[in-house]
């Protein structure tokens, strides 16, 4: 019979020559090590983002000359806006429909189905659209950036930049950060329309609501603060996705396997960071009122 987990652990400690008294010390050592490693990673991530912002500062404030290439910024704006549009249309449109269908059942039971447009609108603008834009960007842009930068690391391209004293953060990270900073609010704004549009389709087709009335009620429920919060969230999520993907890609080791690992890590860490940032921003706005 397999011994219970605790007993197996005690056995393994005994086999290793460690007394059970030292277990706490060991686990503390492991957690301290992991914490320190995480802090070092966060520090490195912050440093690379800081270096990219250095190149975005006005030339007069910098010791090193040179600008972020404009054509690279345009390329990235196109990549993060037009590139994600088809996927975003499907995801946001469908989620708007699903939300409307789920709410319709409950609201009809309560006899307040006329609240559907305002609930869908507020949910979409304040929460669902920015969150889904962030998730779509992490899967679409984050994964591709991490694999792209990881492949550059593996093929010595990043080292080649350094060997010519050209900052890779200037040519590779800064255009991507500016690109997402421009594209993310646009895409998030489109996400509002797509999500609300999805809800409108269901309200009109299944509940027989008038589309004009639906739009009027949605607009009446929303204020400028809701829209700004949604756009701010989209912006923060986009910047997190790009910077995390860059960071994971730029520290790839171990060839193709490493690139695969970095891609997965970029998506997973981006999604976790997006949700954590969402909670923080929602809490802050909740406190501000």
């Amino acid at each position: 019979m397999t011994p219970p987990t605790a007993a197996r652990l005690a056995l393994s400690f005994k086999e290793c020559g460690r007394t059970p008294d030292k277990r706490e010390e060991l686990s503390e050592g492991v957690s301290t090590g992991m914490f320190r490693k995480s802090m070092v990673s966060v520090g490195d991530w912050g440093t690379s983002v800081g270096r990219a912002f250095y190149w975005l500062a006005p030339a007069g404030l910098r010791r090193r000359r040179g600008a972020v290439p404009a054509f690279a910024i345009v390329e990235q704006v196109d990549r993060f806006s037009i590139g994600v549009l088809p996927l975003l249309t499907v995801v946001l449109g469908f989620v708007g429909m699903i939300l409307a269908l789920q709410l319709a059942t409950i609201l009809e039971l309560l006899g307040v189905v006329e609240f559907l447009p305002s609930i869908v609108g507020i949910a979409m603008v304040r929460e669902m659209a920015p969150l889904l834009v962030g998730v779509v960007l992490s899967g679409f842009a984050g994964a591709s950036i991490a694999s792209e930068i990881g492949s550059m690391k593996v093929s010595d391209e990043l080292r080649a930049y350094e060997s010519f004293s050209i900052a890779p953060t200037r040519y590779l990270l800064a255009p991507r950060l500016v690109g997402i900073a421009i594209a993310a609010p646009i895409v998030t704004g489109l996400g509002f329309y797509l999500g609300i549009g999805g809800g409108l389709v269901i309200a009109e087709a299944i509940l027989g609501m008038d589309s004009g009335q639906y739009i009027t009620r949605t607009l009446a429920a929303l204020d400028l603060q809701d829209v700004l919060l949604g756009l701010l969230k989209g912006e923060v999520f986009g910047l997190l996705v790009v910077s995390i993907a860059w960071f994971e890609g730029s520290r790839v080791t171990g060839g193709a396997l490493g690139v695969g690992r970095a891609t997965t890590a970029a998506v997973v860490k981006s999604v976790v960071a997006i949700i954590a940032a969402d909670l923080l921003l929602t809490f802050l706005f909740f406190r501000i009122g």
């Binding site: 010791r63 550059m152 010595d156 391209e157 080292r159 080649a160 060997s163 010519f164 004293s165």
Partner: peptide, 21 residues
């Protein structure tokens, strides 16, 4: 800063070329 200036004076041919793709 000085390392950057140093690297400019040292040309390096990478094994696989490492061109900017």
């Amino acid at each position: 800063a000085r390392l950057d200036a140093h690297r400019v004076k040292v040309g390096f041919l990478f094994q696989n070329g490492a061109l900017f793709q």
